[in-house]
């Protein structure tokens, strides 16, 4: 109920922040070597942060569903998995565009890119299993969600373990010192996209809930 009351005000705030984000990005200082091209980072990083959150939600909800049999947790997991695929796609596309300008190639089989691609595949598989798995597919999907969540830390740490072209995770932790203005804009954009993700998740969960209610009503009407 709280979510439904908050939905419209939050939507307005998110839209306002989104509208302001290009201005903030334009005002941020140029990065010394990549110049304008680096600006894509302000949407690239937030997309992956949103994905991290939605993967976590999906994994936890899958585990809750599997061990407690809670139907609501299953609906949350399904919604989070779809959002994971969307933000993963956004992150891959923005990264590919950036890579074309910064590295000269659309795609590089480096550790982070490969692992990110895999994560995208896993959650795409989740959706396939859910839609075409037949009866009992929810449990199969839940297992997929848990194993997908288990591989996510590998994706995150892959760049630190293997020498690759993708920047290391330490870029973000030191950015506050090297360039405070950039740091501020990155987190502004991240917060905006996370809010957007939260709204998508809420809307998607509500859709699943209404579907479940509709199914129940059909069954009752048949009896």
């Amino acid at each position: 109920m709280v979510m439904r009351k908050l939905f419209v005000p939050m939507l307005v705030i998110t839209a306002a922040m989104f509208a302001y984000s290009p201005i903030a990005i334009a005002n941020a200082p140029y990065e010394s070597t990549m110049r304008l091209v680096q600006k894509i980072f302000y949407y690239h990083f937030p997309a992956w942060m949103a994905l991290t959150v939605s993967v976590t939600v999906c994994t936890v909800a899958s585990a809750v569903y599997l061990f407690k049999g809670n139907a609501r947790a299953d609906r949350i997991a399904a919604a989070a998995a779809e959002i994971t695929v969307i933000f993963g796609l956004f992150g891959l596309v923005s990264g590919s565009l950036w890579g074309r300008k910064a590295w000269g190639v659309w795609w590089q089989w480096d550790a982070r890119l490969t692992m990110a691609f895999l994560l995208e595949l896993i959650f795409f598989g989740y959706i396939l299993v859910r839609n075409y798995g037949g009866p009992g597919a929810e449990k199969l999907a839940a297992a997929m969600g848990i194993f997908g969540g288990a591989t996510a830390p590998f994706v995150y740490k892959s760049v630190d373990w293997w020498r690759t072209v993708h920047p290391k995770t330490s870029v973000m932790t030191t950015l506050g010192e090297t360039s405070p203005q950039m740091w501020y804009v990155v987190w502004f954009c991240t917060f905006t996209i996370l809010l957007f993700m939260g709204l998508l998740l809420a809307a998607r969960i509500r859709l699943e809930e209404q579907r479940a209610t509709l199914d129940r009503l059909y069954l009752e009407a048949e009896d």
């Binding site: 895999l118 595949l121 896993i122 795409f124 598989g125 299993v129 075409y132 199969l140």
Partner: peptide
């Protein structure tokens, strides 16, 4: 379903 589930996770 077996390859769909298994390959991405075991890659």
């Amino acid at each position: 379903m077996l390859p769909i589930l298994l390959y991405p996770i075991t890659i």
